[in-house]
Design a protein around this nucleic acid. Structure first.
Lengths: 221, 221
DNA sequence: CGATGTGCGGAGCAAACCGCTCCGCACTAA
DNA sequence: TTAGTGCGGAGCGGTTTGCTCCGCACATCG
């Protein structure tokens, strides 16, 4: 059977839809928790409900798919970090990457699913890998000695959700969103500086503009 | 007219109800955003809907009351910080206090109200006070030079909402809640360490137990 | 030119939940 | 007994929910 150009274009659009859906779902789930509505997800992805429901049997199925992807991303990030020649730098990169991906932000929705919680075998293997990475970051003198692996996981969860970024994303102005993301990257850097054993490098990104604090009230009053 | 013991006891209970309501409202509003339901608030406060609605005309009125209280607390905290002999220590205390109070967590609900957003005169007076405090913290050498006032405000907002604390509070186990709060206090300390110009003091609180990460899935499976 | 297939948007359905009202109850003071 | 007070929560109409299902656009095939 031949495959025409048209068909390929169609498939590409399908794939794009698929990705937009997953990306939007992750954002909306993270923001609204278990109350996220499928309507909001479809709208954020720019697709109709039909498109969503042809791919996933239910809201729960979509959520579970996100959980699996999130797990994969965590494992991949762990591997990347483990391969870094400098364990401390590897750990820092891991934190940044995980926070920006939103690692841990799906947790509050566990009620939706009956999938096994992350005490399972796979997860604890990842836990061991992570603990080993932290151990090496301690040993090389980069990570302050009194910070534990649990501290760092909690830090990732804590920074994953950002009121600032979430509120400003809703305005839909690309420039502002970029600024908000940069502002959060500074916060991550501050936290990482607090995790370091030695005095810190200077902060990345230009200082956040004050209008970030007020831009959110656009359209209220 | 005489005031009996019974009357006093009654009034005390009323006052307790009042405070429970406000405390619960702040928690639930912070957690659920503008979708917080009055039902959830009343339940969290352990009172009936009637009790809530005799005190506040509407959900919006309750929210606006919280906004006012939040503003008062911010101003009071600013004054306390300004009075501290060591500006940097005063600023650190301010951050800790504000994060634990939940300063900034009400922002995402602005849609509910028609009160003027915090670009108003009062707020900008507070802004000036805060900027002055930051300035003195810079001058005394405590605060790293490349951290700005906006950074610190965003940090307070960022730490105010804590997935960990919110999820674990829902379990209703006092011991666990205490632990979760202590874990967050360590995160605050880490962040403050990242804000410091000099190498940091050691972290407060014992390291967080790993079971904090798994305790939340109680009752799921 | 139909016939068939495919991916899509969104109107519409029952059920759940929303903010809010209101009534009956427990208790006290007169 | 009567009047007054603070209270819990059932219940009201209206909105929102997760999800179904149908008509449309377009491409391929006979």
């Amino acid at each position: 059977m031949n495959v025409s150009k048209r068909q390929l274009a169609r498939q590409a659009e399908v794939a794009r839809n698929d990705e937009a859906l997953l990306r939007a779902a992750r954002r909306v789930f993270a923001r609204d928790g278990e109350r996220a509505s499928v309507n909001a997800i479809a709208e954020a992805a720019g697709v109709g409900m039909g498109t969503l429901y042809r791919r996933y049997d239910s809201k729960t199925a979509l959520y579970e798919r996100l959980l699996v992807l999130s797990n994969q991303q965590w494992n991949a990030a762990l591997r990347t970090a483990a391969d870094h020649p400098d364990p401390w730098q590897g750990l820092q990169d891991l934190v940044i990457e995980s926070v920006e991906y939103g690692q841990g932000t799906l947790a509050p929705l566990r009620k939706l699913t009956s999938l096994p919680p992350p005490t399972a075998d796979l997860a604890s293997a990842a836990d061991r890998d992570f603990a080993a990475l932290v151990e090496r970051a301690h040993a090389c003198g980069g990570l302050r000695r009194d910070a534990t692996a649990t501290d760092i996981i909690l830090l990732i969860e804590q920074l994953g959700r950002s009121p600032l970024v979430e509120q400003i994303e809703e305005l839909g102005e690309a420039a502002l969103t970029t600024e908000a993301r940069a502002a959060r990257r500074r916060l991550i850097a501050i936290a990482l500086g607090g995790l370091a054993a030695a005095p810190h490098a200077s902060l990345p990104e230009p200082p956040p503009a004050q209008h970030l604090l007020t831009a959110r009230w656009r359209g209220t009053r």
